[in-house]
Design a protein around this nucleic acid. Structure first.
Lengths: 183, 183
DNA sequence: GTCTATAAACTGATAGAC
DNA sequence: GTCTATCAGTTTATAGAC
């Protein structure tokens, strides 16, 4: 694979960050260029228009989501436990990619919505293989709920209290274990 | 309480619909006015600026959320079961209000984020009283996950398959009953 | 590869007629 | 209460210099 220029990645990171922090509306080409340390013209050399910028973001999201599928399958603690733990916002690449992409889906960007559906379907299949349909769905929705709250609360870029979110995840894991022991 | 003019409510409904269907960016004053069947000037008579429009939307969201708290408390099937069932998108007033407001939260609108947090806190308290902390959190996140998916999938205004969503809710309710029987 | 300058379209908001 | 006309500020994108 060809080595991408540094500026290109800086632009992509800046776009992602702005989507997370100020939403789709605030992620203007000018704001992205400024955050990436290039001019608007320089940005548009690497990405001829805004759709190209979005496409690159979605490609990266797909890559990271694919890695996550593998990680789930090989996780020692099991796919379900791994998945819930991974759904807590920790500022990692997949979390950032997920939230940024969700901001685009929310403005009714059709291609983004399609990609999201595909990725979530893959995750659900791995969960179902381990947990069965009912519990897999429960885990999937709990994970989505965790992300939904990251999406809502992280708008202003404020940090989340790690001990608080840890306690929340422990709650969910206890429920998961309870059902596995019983079901 | 004073009777609000018809046009005013038509504008508010149009704003809500556009937020749901095309997102915050597409819900421009011009688009809202057109959908409500008034001119931009007419719209701005009732709502002096866009913030006023948002404020009215949030007030209605608060009202409906408050009614939901009461409905949860008095639901014969219990707050948890009622809450999960109510979290499925059915195009009702609270669902629409919730999704519309989430679109504003996603563009980092601070006041909207604050209101959301307050409402979710109230809902969680009712759930905790009935289910205990762990299960209440699980139910809360499953509900959020349900809404998150409504937010994502409903962007294009497409309908959801009722039988499919019904089956999904049954899945979640079985898990809930299982834990209640055990926990 | 990166910049400045600028065009073309759009958005929120004001002024004033009816 | 509702409309048309219009302005000022933004946003995406293009053209062309370096």
């Amino acid at each position: 694979m060809p080595r991408k220029p540094v500026a290109r990645n800086a632009v992509l990171d800046a776009f992602e960050t702005l989507l997370i922090e100020v939403g789709e509306r605030g992620a203007t080409l000018e704001a992205v260029a400024a955050k990436a340390g290039v001019s608007k013209g320089g940005l548009l050399y690497h990405f001829p228009n805004k759709e190209a910028l979005i496409a690159a973001l979605l490609d990266r999201f797909d890559e990271l989501a694919q890695e996550e599928v593998e990680a789930m399958k090989t996780a020692p603690e099991g796919a379900g436990v791994y998945f819930i733990k991974a759904s807590v916002w920790d500022g990692g690449p997949l979390d950032r990619s997920f939230v940024a992409a969700s901001r685009l889906a929310e403005v009714a960007h059709e291609e983004t919505q399609r990609r999201f559906a595909g990725i979530q379907q893959q995750w659900l299949e791995v969960l179902t293989a381990e947990l069965g349909e009912d519990l897999a769905r429960a885990v999937r929705y709990m994970s989505d709920g965790l992300y939904f709250n990251a999406v809502l609360e992280n708008g202003g870029g404020r940090e989340m209290d790690p001990s608080k979110t840890d306690a929340e995840v422990e709650s969910l894991l206890r429920i998961l274990e309870l059902v596995r022991g019983k079901g």
